[in-house]
Write a protein that binds this DNA or RNA. Structure first.
Lengths: 112, 112
DNA sequence: GTTATATTTAGGTATTGACCTAAGTATCTG
DNA sequence: CAGATACTTAGGTCAATACCTAAATATAAC
């Protein structure tokens, strides 16, 4: 694949894991520390922290360390990349469906 | 990770690859055969076909073979899983930001 | 200043992902 | 029916991912 991943690739990749999506959902409510975030998951901490790293590299979250506690928060702009891409595709095929006669399309599908 | 991937995991995973996103964009315009889809890519056909398999397993596209030609088309309902998930997160943190605004406003008013 | 807490680093394993080449099958066309 | 076309199957490589345990570091609390 490509040498370096594009932001949008990283965003979708980050979103493809259920653990990471759960973390994002948690952070959508409020910022939280590593251990708070890890608590619901039955996973060794270093493994979990790797998910946090993937999220941060994707730009979907940011973190800052104060003392011994690292706090993560959501960084909403990046999610927009994904939303916008999806919206654009939707617009494309919706326009296509508008142009076509829906009835004829259905007939065509049935014959295939 | 999990034994079997959830549909939404598969959808985001399928979307994380630029080749696959380009294929989706192409299919948003109209259905197309394997070789039509493969044409823009500098990749051995079997490698490319594997991307089509990932897309079909995710439910983002469907295919049917007629004679020796397999035709792919977009299957838009699945993309909604991703759109809905993103919309939900957005709603969550936008609501949170609203609350924060209200709180800050209140602080400000008290100080005046 | 010792002990507890909150990560972080180091390093290892097993599976999956993204590619390849070579060879096979099925359908169409002259 | 012979050759071209449109995939499909088989099998191999290499890197990345998702986990793990054990040990290190840095800060906080007694």
């Amino acid at each position: 694949m490509t040498e370096v991943m594009e932001p949008i690739d990283q965003v979708f990749r980050a979103l493809s894991d259920p653990t990471r999506r759960q973390v994002l959902a948690r952070l959508s409510r409020s910022p939280a520390s590593v251990s708070e975030l890890a608590q619901p998951f039955d996973m060794a901490l270093p493994s979990f922290v790797q998910h946090l790293r993937v999220l941060e590299e994707s730009g979907l979250v940011r973190s800052a360390k104060r003392g011994r506690v690292r706090t993560y928060r959501i960084a909403p702009q990046r999610m927009k990349l994904a939303e916008d891409w999806l919206a654009e595709q939707r617009q494309l095929w919706e326009r296509r469906l508008d142009q076509l006669d829906a009835y004829l399309l259905e007939l065509k599908e049935k014959s295939e």
